[in-house]
Structure formats: structure tokens, C-alpha cells
Amino acid sequence: MLIPCPHCGDRDVSEYSYLGDATIKRPNQEKANPHKWETFVYNRQNPRGPHKELWQHNGGCRLIVEITRDTISHEILSMKATGPHKTGLGK
């Protein structure tokens, strides 16, 4: 599997580490109820088909990219950079 990185181009999956489901948003520290925390920490959908997920290019530039990957074909449908560095990067 090749994963696109906005700095480094298409790179082999072995250069990346998987950081999990990108659709999960961390609850607000102060306000969230236990149910929201439980969902954030434990519950994942494991969809068949397109899935948004985070991969870190830690064998390269260390950027964390958010990709949409088809979990059946492993086709990468979209990619964008995360974090403060994302300006001007990605599609």
C-alpha cells in the first residue's frame, strides 16, 4: 500500500504508523459526560469501505495525514495534512 504524504509523495505503508480512526473527536475536557469519553476511548466503527483514518509518516517527515482509505481495496480516496502545518498542503 502506498500512502501519499504532502511533503514526501507516495510512500510505502511501512514508513507510516497507524494512529487510528480520524472520525473520532476528542470530547471537551471540562464538559463531556462519561458516555462521551467511553465512545472516544473505546468505540470504533470498523467500516467496510471508505474509512477516514490518521497515519503518521514517522519514517519520513513525521507529518500526520488524514486519509480516506477503502478498507476492501486499500485505495486511498483522499488525503489531507493535519495540525498547524497543514496550510497549503494536501488536496
Binding site: L19, Q56, L63, I64, P84
Partner: peptide, 13 residues
């Protein structure tokens, strides 16, 4: 390092 980078990039940009 990876753990902290995740928070800075995704949760607390």
C-alpha cells in the same frame, strides 16, 4: 513523541 504529536496535530492544533 508520537503520542504528543498526535495531540498537537489533531486534538489541540
Amino acid at each position: 513523541l508520537e503520542h504528543m504529536e498526535l495531540y498537537l496535530s489533531v486534538h489541540w492544533p
